[in-house]
């Protein structure tokens, strides 16, 4: 059996591999390399650039708004990663226990994910402004309002998604280990912290990876909900890059340089996070 599959793979590999490879090249690799190149140039359109060396990068560190958006993004990512994962895990834990209507609730919790970020942003803007209206204020009152507004939106959208991943992980937990633990007299609390969570580490790795990178890359929701108001105090990294790119004539390269730095930050953070959580994974 295996050798037959091996044979056909050897013959047909190109059919399976090439389409993905081409898509990967066009959709990712080429733009990525071009993006790095463009960060060293001055350009209006991407096919028409001239080399300016490192000048796009100089002054980036002194850009106060860039720094502010970096701090804002880091805080946002920490808060959402914690809240989304704890809540997602808890909800999944509830729904894997015998509970009436669990399937319905799973579907309901997952649904926010099917709505696009821009639409979510506008819907939540209406909702939150309606609430703030009672005190004669709006989301633009201060950057803190925008921050918590974004946190609420993000949690609402992502908890259901992470829940699904956690549920999948929980359902494949080995029954024998659980049973052995309860026969040995472990309390439910002990089972949760000593057995379930360690065994769930692969799912936790995936979910934290997703929430951390989503937090850093957040753009649509930020654009629609606050658009940085007031005075760019609720602006995250991706929006700052976008605004740099289009805000002034001749700043496309600077925006691109910010994007390269942005990539480095996200890559480093994601790698560290991955290393940390995978190191905690155990075998049953």
């Amino acid at each position: 059996m295996i050798s037959m599959i091996g044979k056909s793979i050897r013959r047909w590999w190109a059919v399976f591999l090439l389409p993905t490879l081409v898509a990967f090249l066009i959709g990712f690799l080429i733009p990525f390399v071009m993006g790095i190149y463009l960060s060293f140039t001055r350009f209006t359109t991407v096919t028409d650039a001239h080399w300016v060396g490192l000048s796009n990068y100089s002054g980036l560190l002194a850009d106060r708004e860039f720094q502010h958006s970096l701090v804002f993004t880091v805080l946002f990512t920490i808060v959402t990663t914690l809240v989304v994962n704890v809540a997602g895990f808890f909800v999944a834990y509830m729904f894997t226990k015998a509970m009436k209507g669990a399937n319905l609730f799973r579907a309901v919790f997952f649904m926010p994910n099917l709505i696009g970020g821009i639409i979510l942003g506008y819907v939540w803007q209406l909702l939150l402004n309606g609430v703030f209206g009672h005190w004669g204020r709006s989301l633009t009152y201060s950057g803190t309002y925008g921050f918590w507004g974004l946190v609420i939106l993000m949690c609402w959208q992502q908890i259901g998604y992470m829940m699904v991943i956690y549920i999948a992980g929980m359902q494949s937990l080995p029954d024998d280990v659980m049973e052995a633990a309860s026969v040995d007299g472990a309390s439910p609390r002990q089972i949760l912290f000593r057995i379930t969570i360690p065994l769930m580490m692969p799912s936790i790795t995936v979910c934290t990876f997703l929430t951390v990178t989503n937090g850093f890359k957040l753009f649509d929701q930020n654009l629609a909900l606050t658009n940085g108001a007031p005075s760019n105090t609720s602006e995250m990294l991706a929006l700052n890059i976008y605004r740099t790119f289009y805000g002034r004539t001749g700043y496309e390269g600077v925006g691109q340089a910010k994007a390269v730095i942005f990539f480095l930050i996200v890559a480093v953070v994601a790698l560290i996070q991955n290393k940390l959580t995978t190191s905690k994974e155990v075998a049953a």
Partner: peptide, 27 residues
């Protein structure tokens, strides 16, 4: 056993990324 857990989460993760990727393509 560990293998199957990993496989499940890997599948889910791939699906997750796939969905996220596709949604980025619209518009």
């Amino acid at each position: 056993m560990q293998g199957s857990i990993k496989k499940v989460s890997a599948t889910v993760a791939v699906l997750a990324l796939g969905v996220a990727g596709l949604s980025g393509c619209g518009g």
